[in-house]
């Protein structure tokens, strides 16, 4: 069943993934099985993905993250929210992030 992502949700990096910065390359190394499809798969986040990932601290809502980013980037709040919903869905489906607060 596909998760409905809401801007009021809170997410945090999964403990089953290690985020590493190797000379500017931001990668996610799965620790447990079921995250990558192949035995030697690791993942890379692009610049947008990285910025959002680093703000997912298990405390801020996605909306709050969008607001913070709107101060930094020359993009509309709506555009930023779309980006955040996109990456959250992608990361959640890959089990790289977890919901920090269960939905009511």
């Amino acid at each position: 069943m596909e998760l409905k992502i809401n801007l009021d949700d809170i997410y945090a990096p999964s403990e089953d993934v290690v985020a590493r910065d190797i000379q500017g390359e931001f990668i996610l190394v799965p620790v447990t099985s079921g995250i990558g499809d192949l035995e030697d798969e690791i993942f890379s986040l692009n610049e947008t993905g990285r910025v959002i990932w680093e703000k997912m601290d298990g405390k801020k809502t996605l909306r709050a993250i969008a607001k913070e980013l709107a101060y930094v980037y020359a993009a509309s709040q709506k555009e930023i929210e779309e980006d955040i919903l996109g990456i959250t869905k992608e990361l959640f489906n890959r089990k790289m992030i977890v919901e920090a607060k269960p939905k009511k």
């Binding site: 798969e41 692009n46 980013l69 990456i87």
Partner: peptide
């Protein structure tokens, strides 16, 4: 920001980092 993919899903082997002259 803009429309783009966020997570690159192809395999990234360590050789990708060699050109960066890692110690």
């Amino acid at each position: 920001m803009g429309k783009q993919f966020y997570v690159q899903t192809k395999n990234i082997r360590e050789s990708r980092f060699i050109h960066k002259k890692l110690l």
